[in-house]
Amino acid sequence: MDALPPRLLTGYREFMQGRYASESNRYRTLAKDGQTPETMVIACCDSRAAPETIFDCGPGELFVVRNVANLVPPYEPDGKHHSTSAALEFAVQSLKVKHIVVLGHGRCGGIKTALDPASAPLSPGDFIGKWMGLVAPAAEAVATNTMMTVTERQTALERISIRYSIANLRSFPCVSILEGKGRLTLHGAWFDISTGELWAMNPATGDFERPEFD
């Protein structure tokens, strides 16, 4: 049995011969001085929507946390385990990032699950079902809209959940205080896997718009 899947070993070899070889000084600097990314991205763990690939970023540029459906839970200092909240705390308080981007994407499996609460759990723990319960009220409202197609309902909730996560970000004191001082900005974005289109959330209206490039 191989220590790692063959595809990963092949990829690692290509990485060492290619990207690492061309950026070895950068990696050594990052190892010596530590990371200082200006942007945190909260993204979905879907294998088709990797932030570093979408934004063409190199090592040390993004601090990324990924979970099912790129959700941010509300601030709950209850002593339980909160991985996304822990990553957020580290990014804001220790790394002192200047931007937080919630990055959603099309055809999200977690959002699909939220729109179909009657679907059978994948395990007795139903971890995905419970996690997607974070957007249950919005999912119920969207799911009952018979004027929309299945695809339209999916896209609608994918984007609504981004606004939901940004609202929850503001429930964290460290975020709301720094945002109020102008030292931290919150952003929303949605990526269409099939076309490669990126839509950015207008901070004033909440609408998703295609960014303009110079």
Rank of each mutant, 00 (worst) to 15 (best):
E14C: 15
F15D: 10
F15S: 10
M16V: 15
G18R: 13
G18E: 13
Y20A: 15
Y20P: 11
A21L: 14
A21I: 11
S22L: 13
E23I: 12
S24A: 15
S24V: 15
S24K: 15
S24D: 14
R26C: 10
Y27A: 10
Y27L: 11
Y27T: 10
R28K: 09
R28P: 10
T29R: 11
T29G: 10
T29K: 09
T29C: 07
L30D: 03
L30Q: 04
K32Q: 14
K32D: 14
D33N: 06
Q35E: 02
T36K: 09
T36I: 07
E38H: 05
T39A: 04
T39V: 03
M40Y: 00
V41C: 02
V41G: 06
V41L: 02
V41D: 04
I42H: 09
I42T: 09
I42F: 09
A43R: 12
C44S: 12
C45Y: 09
D46S: 01
D46V: 07
S47C: 09
R48H: 08
R48N: 08
A49Y: 05
A49C: 06
A49F: 04
A49I: 05
A50K: 15
I54Q: 09
C57L: 14
C57W: 12
G58S: 13
G58Y: 13
P59C: 08
G60M: 04
G60E: 05
G60S: 00
G60N: 03
E61A: 01
L62N: 12
V64C: 01
V65E: 01
V65Y: 04
R66Q: 01
N67A: 06
N67M: 00
N67E: 07
V68Y: 05
V68H: 04
A69D: 00
N70H: 00
V72Y: 05
P73M: 09
P74F: 00
Y75W: 05
P77G: 02
P77R: 03
D78G: 04
G79D: 08
H81Q: 09
H81L: 13
S83A: 12
T84I: 01
A86N: 05
L88I: 05
